[in-house]
């Protein structure tokens, strides 16, 4: 029964995002431009260095890492902060709170159509193109299975962080400022803009203790290092799982406290 509710929400949201095919194409073009930029930027960076391997990463490693990081972020984006924030401002949230489903699950399932569509239309093509362009530099094997699990965990972590930020909007009535701060922090500390391998030693150690690196750095480490023993992969997955559980409990408590504070203007 509960599953049926969730599935119908997912179905509706898939249909909803299929309405915007033009948007999908433009997102794809936008990504291509972004990839061109990072390609030339890092080519220039590596050309200025004496050695081909910097902090254990070659040029092609760095490119694969950054392309995948941007592709992962692209497909994970669910616009939760904007969606929920707008609902708080307009008062629509009251209706959503009354629905016979937990609010957080409602937000998750009614938002996950877009990631599903984008996974098929942008992430998979990008991954296949990168695989062939890079001269099959991505090892294929058991890492793919672990990678899939890790991506799912990363997506949950990303969702909980977004949901946490959306809850803050109940206090501030500000969406733009809160959302941009989130984007900045996640973008920088997850290693999506500069790979974590390039971070100075101490900064990297601090970042490893934060949940952000578990969004896309963990899956990418698993994907690019097939040589990792299973025990090491399990440690990475374990850390991700820890963050999922921690954030699940934390966002739940925080939401329970915050929802009492909600003010709807003129509702």
């Amino acid at each position: 029964m509960k599953l049926k509710r969730c599935l119908s929400l997912v179905r509706a949201s898939i249909l909803d995002s299929l309405q915007f095919r033009g948007a999908l194409i433009l997102t794809f073009v936008g990504n291509l431009f972004y990839l061109l930029l990072i390609y030339y930027l890092w080519k220039a960076i590596f050309a200025s260095s004496e050695s081909d391997i910097i902090n254990g990463m070659t040029f092609s490693d760095t490119m694969i890492y950054l392309v995948f990081a941007s592709a992962l972020f692209n497909f994970m984006e669910m616009w939760i902060v904007w969606g929920t924030g707008r609902n708080i401002q307009s008062g629509q949230i009251i209706i959503d709170l009354l629905k016979p489903i937990e609010f957080r699950s409602f937000v998750f399932f009614s938002g996950c159509g877009e990631p599903i569509i984008k996974f098929v239309t942008t992430f998979l093509p990008t991954a296949i193109i990168v695989y062939f362009i890079s001269g099959r530099a991505i090892p294929l094997g058991k890492n793919l299975i672990f990678f899939t699990i890790s991506v799912a965990l990363g997506m949950l972590i990303n969702f909980y962080i977004n949901f946490f930020v959306a809850t803050i909007c109940m206090y501030t009535q500000s969406i733009w400022g809160i959302n941009i701060m989130k984007e900045v922090i996640v973008g920088l500390l997850s290693g999506a803009s500069v790979p974590l391998a390039f971070f100075p030693e101490t900064l990297r150690e601090i970042v490893m203790y934060l949940p952000f690196q578990a969004i896309c750095n963990s899956p990418l480490q698993i994907l690019l290092h097939n040589e990792y023993p299973v025990s090491e992969v399990l440690v990475i997955l374990g850390i991700q799982l820890f963050w999922v559980i921690f954030l699940m409990i934390f966002t739940d408590l925080f939401f329970r406290v915050s929802v009492r504070k909600i003010t709807v203007n003129g509702g």
């Binding site: 501030t172 009535q173 500000s174 733009w176 400022g177 941009i180 701060m181 900045v184 922090i185």
Partner: peptide, 15 residues
């Protein structure tokens, strides 16, 4: 909307 203004300003500088 003073709070929004201050947060947006901080957000801008953080970016």
């Amino acid at each position: 909307y003073r709070a929004d203004f201050i947060i947006s300003m901080i957000g801008m500088i953080a970016t």
